[in-house]
Design a protein around this nucleic acid. Structure first.
Length: 505
RNA sequence: GGUCCCGUCGUCUAGUGGCCCAGGACGCCGCCCUCUCAAGGCGGUAACGCCGGUUCGACUCCGGUCGGGACUACCA
């Protein structure tokens, strides 16, 4: 336990920060990165820190946008069970955790960098920059034009009324660092431009804020998407400029992103990205946690199915793969069915209620009849669905008030034909005569009536389907005897009668 | 263009020089079970990108090559 991958050397002092990208809803790939960071923090007994990047985001940095941002992060993280120890809600020793409340801090460091020569003002206009890029020899980096301005030149620019931005003076040389996932890396500073720290109006940029936040929040492990890897040298340079001792630098672990079917990084144009969609679509968080983690990490015993506890218990950065993985909706779907089946019956019954309410089959608070139907009906279907959204269709026959009950037109047309008269009649007679209304008795009565009944004797399957459609309204569904037992004799016979009456002659 | 990263079945992965003519899972195909639809059980399909090198031995190490991706902002 002394290698950095398992976090052993940081035991108890691991601190991982998650800063969701601004813009409202979270994406599955950033949630996966969060999941890894969270698992690492939990595995090592460290802290998981939530911070909000609400400075200068796409939404113009308005207060409402920032609040939406916080709410979206909170909701998604809660749903997946990723709890955090410090954040905008509960605060913590290194707060505040909203960048908009840390402006003062960024300004202090900006000033310090100016004083120590690590930063300088740049008066170039965007147009001038663009023009020089055009004529320049291929390089798109900033040409460091304003590094060596004379006082006279500065005076002249100021007299013109130019508003300067603050740039970081990238030192000469190169940076070598070890990425926990990618291994040792050396980047020549030639390839790292003098990036902008602060807008002319004082708004800090990510190059400043992320380094300052990680350093001042005493983050030990920066676990983030690999797209951030090229930014690492400049962050290390900022730490040095801040005077942070090397042994207090966070270590980096860049996890490869998720890609879509087209092999490209998951982004807004992929249908599968937004996390809130999955809850609405009947996925359980256990499935998302498991599936997302399995994209890159695997437990030592190799199982594809595991719980978050397994994840926390066995998590090790050394077991995280470094190549990008494709997000496969089909596999998530299968896993979701598995996780649903693993739920206790009571838990399952509880979780399907919102979906029944959503479809209008029940309204909360539930009546005692409804509770009874849900509790007893749930086990009938728990094994046969893959998403919670399938529940309403499966249980509708029980929950719909009788006057509103009608078989599905398509199924009725296919099955409730003139030939159905015989089996329907036979079933109704057998069921009416039953002494005990239990699933077993119903099963026996049905078999006897439909196989040995009068008439030319259609096969048991062909005879049973009309009964199924007449009573449950659909050709597919939970086992018939159990369904009828729950429905009750009265309602069953009434539906049989009404189906017989509606048959074409 | 430049800098960097990645490369095992269709997909997710196991594999850290012999245990691998490569194991598991999803998908797909077939069979069994069966009152529908599922679930479950059994079996099958299918991969180390390519070329060299190191070695008695390479999926594992090295070099090259090809392919994919990221970054390259006064966005975060």
């Amino acid at each position: 336990m002394t290698d950095p991958w398992s976090g052993g050397q940081y035991a108890g002092s691991v601190r991982v920060r998650f800063a969701p990208s601004p813009g409202g809803h979270l994406h599955v790939d950033e949630l996966r990165t969060a999941l890894f960071g969270w698992a690492f923090a939990r595995h090592t007994g460290g802290a998981f820190v939530l911070s909000i990047d609400d400075v200068d985001g796409p939404g113009d940095g308005t207060a409402e946008v920032a609040e939406e941002h916080v709410a979206a992060a909170r909701e998604a993280l809660h749903w997946l069970g990723l709890n955090w120890d410090e954040g905008p809600d509960q605060g913590g020793p290194y707060g505040p955790y909203r960048q908009s409340e840390r402006i003062e801090l960024y300004h202090q460091w900006a000033q310090r960098f100016l004083d120590t020569g690590y930063a300088y003002w740049c008066y170039c206009s965007p147009e001038e920059l663009a023009a020089r890029h055009e004529s320049g020899a291929g390089t798109s980096d900033y040409d460091r034009y304003c590094r060596t301005l004379t006082p006279d030149q500065v005076q002249a620019y100021l007299a013109e009324g130019r508003q300067p931005v603050l740039r970081f003076r990238m030192p000469d040389g190169s940076t070598t660092f070890t990425d926990l996932l990618g291994g040792e890396l050396t980047v020549d500073h030639q390839a790292v431009p003098d990036f902008v720290l602060m807008h002319a109006d004082g708004r800090p940029l990510h190059g400043l804020t992320s380094a300052v936040d990680d350093a001042t929040m005493r983050i030990s492990h920066v676990i983030r998407d690999t797209s951030q890897l090229p930014a690492t040298p400049r962050e290390l340079a900022v730490y040095r400029a801040m005077g942070l001792p090397e042994d207090q630098f966070p270590v980096f672990a860049h996890v490869a992103g998720l890609v879509g079917e087209d092999g490209e990084k998951l982004s807004r144009h992929h249908a599968v990205t937004a996390i809130d969609r999955y809850r609405r679509d009947g996925f359980v968080p256990e499935a998302l946690d498991n599936y997302l983690a399995s994209l890159g990490w695997s437990p030592e015993d190799g199982r594809a199915e595991f719980t978050v506890d397994d994840l926390v218990g066995g998590f090790d950065l050394a077991r995280v793969r470094t190549s990008a993985a494709e997000f496969d909706p089909a596999e998530l779907e299968t896993l979701n069915g598995t996780k649903i089946r693993a739920l206790t019956p009571a838990d399952f019954a509880r979780r399907i209620v919102p979906f029944l309410a959503q479809s209008g089959l029940v309204t909360e608070p539930l009546s005692s009849d409804q509770m009874w139907f849900i509790r007893d009906g749930a086990p009938l279907i728990q094994d046969r669905i893959t998403r919670l959204t399938e529940v309403p269709a499966q249980l509708a026959f029980l929950l719909v008030p009788d006057p509103g009950f009608h078989p599905q037109p398509a199924d009725a047309a296919a099955v409730l034909t003139a030939e159905a008269a015989t089996p329907l009649k036979a079933a109704a007679e057998a069921l009416a005569a039953l002494p005990d209304w239990t699933a077993e008795a119903i099963e026996q009565a049905l078999s006897a009536a439909l196989v040995d009944g009068p008439g030319p004797g259609p096969g048991p399957e062909a005879a049973r389907t009309p009964v199924q459609v007449a009573v449950t309204g659909r050709r597919e569904g939970p086992p018939l005897p159990g369904s009828l037992a729950l429905l009750g004799r009265e309602r069953t016979l009434a539906r049989l009668a009404s189906a017989q009456a509606s048959l074409p002659s």
